[in-house]
Amino acid sequence: MRIGITGATGFIGRHLSASARKQGHEVVAYSRRLGSGLTQPKEAPHALPETKLDALVHLSGESLLGFWTHEKRDRIWKSRVDFTEALVAHLAKWKPENRPKALVCASGAGFYGNSGTELVDESAPRGEGFLADVCAGWEKAALRAESLGMRVILLRTGMVLGTDGGAFPLLKRVFGLGLGGRLGAGTQGMAWIHIDDAVGLILKSIETESVRGPVNLCAPEAVTNAEFTQQLAAVLKRPAFFHAPAFALKLLLRGMAEEMLLGGQRVIPRVATEMGYGFAHLTLSGALKALV
């Protein structure tokens, strides 16, 4: 297949491009990063030149990390919701024979809001909060591609663990210094997935024509923040005493802390199981040992 990837120089995009090529697919890579040598959509999807694609994987968007000022929230919304709306409108102008048969759009487990201790799969309703609003708007924009005859897949992604990107390198340094610990009470869920399974599940979703709609991009083992903390500390053979009190996180990070750090979801990948995807890393301890 010929697979286009926006955000191709990002953490997931790099691994997805490499894995797709290894499996014999042709990759058309797009990136906003100047000097990457790839086609540059920059801030506007009309910079994606028309070319025949079997699938388009849309991964680009403003990072969620940082202080959630009004300007930061605006950039998050525009780079995800507004950009995706414009992208679908741009694809509508392509010749029908060139349009991708499948649009795979990134979303997030934040769609479910703070689900507490409840296990949630793809049938669970939308939650509350800024992240839930962003994910819902993002998915609604992507689903407009269905009117163009495209199969739309929505990747509700948890924390992707890898050695060369995402949160894991920072966590490894902090815990390696013995400065790790749980966040708040530690009872909030943490949806996670190893990078190898993340890209494997994306490609499996593209190849499985019956798959459409939301796909939870997470491992089968649902854990809490306290369990994640304990297992990472154990793998690194370091203590994890320095837990961050909820009030301090709220004071320092405000909205970001409450939704990304103190809230969470215990997500299970029902669709991945139904499509027969075989996870290489079923348990958190196994994934962490492989990374370390």
Rank of each mutant, 00 (worst) to 15 (best):
I153W: 11
K204F: 07
L155D: 08
A191I: 03
L179C: 12
H243A: 05
A185H: 10
I195E: 05
A234C: 01
S205A: 15
Q188S: 13
P239V: 03
Q188E: 12
A191Y: 09
V160N: 09
E227N: 07
E258D: 13
M159W: 15
R238G: 00
I193K: 03
M150N: 07
G178N: 00
G186A: 15
A234F: 00
I195H: 04
M150W: 06
C218K: 13
W192A: 07
T163W: 09
G186V: 01
G165S: 03
T187S: 14
L249Q: 08
V152N: 09
E209A: 04
L253S: 08
P239I: 00
T163Y: 03
E258K: 07
P214G: 00
L217F: 08
L252R: 13
A248P: 04
A248L: 09
A248W: 06
R212Q: 05
M159K: 07
A257Y: 14
G181E: 02
V235Q: 02
A222H: 07
P245W: 00
T187P: 02
A257G: 05
A226P: 08
A244T: 03
M159N: 12
G213N: 00
C218G: 11
K172E: 15
G255I: 11
M260Y: 05
F247W: 06
P239K: 08
R156Y: 13
V199S: 10
K237D: 05
P220V: 14
G184F: 12
K250I: 12
A198C: 04
G264V: 01
L249E: 06
L179K: 01
L179D: 03
Q265K: 09
I193V: 08
L262Y: 03
V211R: 12
P245E: 03
R151N: 02
M150Y: 03
G158C: 05
K172D: 15
P169C: 12
T208Y: 11
T229Q: 02
V152Q: 05
L155Y: 14
M150C: 13
M260K: 09
Q188R: 02
G184Y: 01
Q230G: 01
V211D: 11
V174K: 05
F247V: 13
P220C: 15
N225H: 14
A240L: 05
L154T: 15
G200E: 12
L155K: 05
Q231P: 02
G263L: 02
G158K: 12
L262V: 12
S205R: 06
